[in-house]
Design a protein around this nucleic acid. Structure first.
Lengths: 257, 257
DNA sequence: CGTACAGTTGAGGAGATTCAATCATCGTGG
DNA sequence: CCACGATGATTGAATCTCCTCAACTGTACG
């Protein structure tokens, strides 16, 4: 059971709170004045640690909270009746998961850690309450939800119109951008997910993902070594997507407005 | 210019307000007490009429309002740099458009009437303001945005995993459900959009849409006569989608929670 | 009544999938 | 510490679905 896995890893604070968090300029705190940040900290449960494979929440279980990702990486997915998995998103630090289940009774997907990960819990009833008192917070949250819609739309567009190469280029560039935003290298990073998850997410067979990556390598666009990716020709990848405006951001998840 | 088309059709009230609107149980009013409904009416501009081809708003123009669809039908779409159209959604009475642009500076897509249509305008700054005073309204709007995310996710899943037949079956069933919700026939209706828009939306060539529809007809699932659709075997269509839970609702847009 | 436009139908081709086999990598236990 | 199994990743060959191109038919509207 997932719930066991969650409780197995103790709840302890990595840091004292949002005001000291290195991600505060990417995450929710960006929406509130510094003198209101303690009200935010009051409702947010800090830094739960998770190991790879641990569930943050499970599809169909009662919805209570969204989660802000502090470190690590998370994938969300749904299971069909036949138990087939469908990956719906990858999330990196500073991004928020569970937005698609807000004000639903149950989570519409499961979330699982792809590596050692820590998250902050945002109980939504208390957050809604706080939002009515801090209009800028409400405004920000509307924006988060809205941009999540837009990003999901762009994913749909990517899936409906673009080839395998374009889809994978798009994902690589999205990851690159998101690493860059955190002041990490935009050209050299490690994929947090296996090929199978990439394929599942992008509507491609694992084999196709593999083939495209080696093709990119042969073209001198990237250098692949397992999950280690080095982008040699950023512009070259971008050219592949020139068709669809903004699809570079298609997988970038909530976090900035 | 689209703005000309908008002003060309005069702004006049079809009905006095939300409290008399036949869609009040599908639309925003469902979220507020009857004694608060006048506060809602105060900020909502009623019943602007539009002809086929008229724009409700245009991509990249400044975002101000969302719109509730009162009658008719609307499609939303984006244009790529090369001017290629990408249909992002179809909307029917009781549903709300513009949610993907909330708290953005500009609309992220254009919205155009597919037939004679009337809409109610919801200026978002005033709506946000009202939301802080009516928590149930804020809660409802969070829910609207959230379910829009979910529906967009389900569309992504549909596009990434399903065949042409499954996609089209899904759209037909979605329309059927949405007509049913408005107490119209769920088995006999008129498609508000041309085949090209269906194909564009579902990531299929027009020819494929046509072929699948005739195939469905030959299989006795439906009866097609141009845009006139009669579903002869509702269960049969549903069987085609048994794989993906919920994708029947994938195209159903915001309106109920 | 003819000109657009929307929709249908057919033939051929391309991209991605599936099936199958091989290779690499990582964590674990002997 | 190395061998081993398991999982992840790669590569090849055959197949299939859907797209493209093309021609044709039907329909709406001036």
């Amino acid at each position: 059971m997932a719930s066991n896995q969650i409780t197995r890893t103790a709840n302890f604070s990595l840091q004292r709170g949002c005001h000291e968090c290195s991600l505060s300029k990417l995450c929710i705190p960006i929406a509130v004045e510094s003198d209101q940040i303690e009200q935010l900290e009051e409702i947010i449960k800090q830094g739960r640690m998770l190991s790879r494979g641990d569930y943050i929440f499970e599809q169909h279980s009662p919805f209570k909270s969204c989660f802000a990702l502090r470190s690590g990486a998370i994938k969300t997915f749904t299971l069909s009746e036949e138990g087939e998995e469908q990956v719906t998103g990858f999330y990196l630090p500073g991004e928020i998961i569970g937005l698609d289940s807000v004000s639903m009774d149950n989570y519409s997907c499961s979330a699982v850690a792809l590596e050692r990960t820590s998250v902050c819990e945002i109980p939504l009833d208390r957050f809604e309450d706080l939002s009515t008192r801090i209009p800028s917070l409400q405004h920000h949250f509307f924006g988060l939800l809205s941009s999540e819609i837009q990003q999901s739309r762009q994913l749909s567009m990517l899936l409906s119109k673009n080839t395998a190469e374009e889809r994978i280029a798009s994902l690589l560039l999205s990851l690159s951008n998101r690493f860059k935003r955190r002041r990490l290298s935009e050209t050299h990073f490690k994929l947090p997910m296996p090929r199978s998850d990439i394929g599942n997410y992008l509507g491609l067979a694992v084999e196709t993902v593999s083939r495209v990556l080696t093709r990119f390598q042969n073209q001198g666009l990237i250098k692949v070594q397992g999950r280690d990716i080095e982008i040699l020709d950023l512009a070259g990848l971008q050219v592949l997507l020139k068709h669809d405006t903004g699809c570079i951001e298609a997988h970038a998840k909530a976090g900035t407005s």
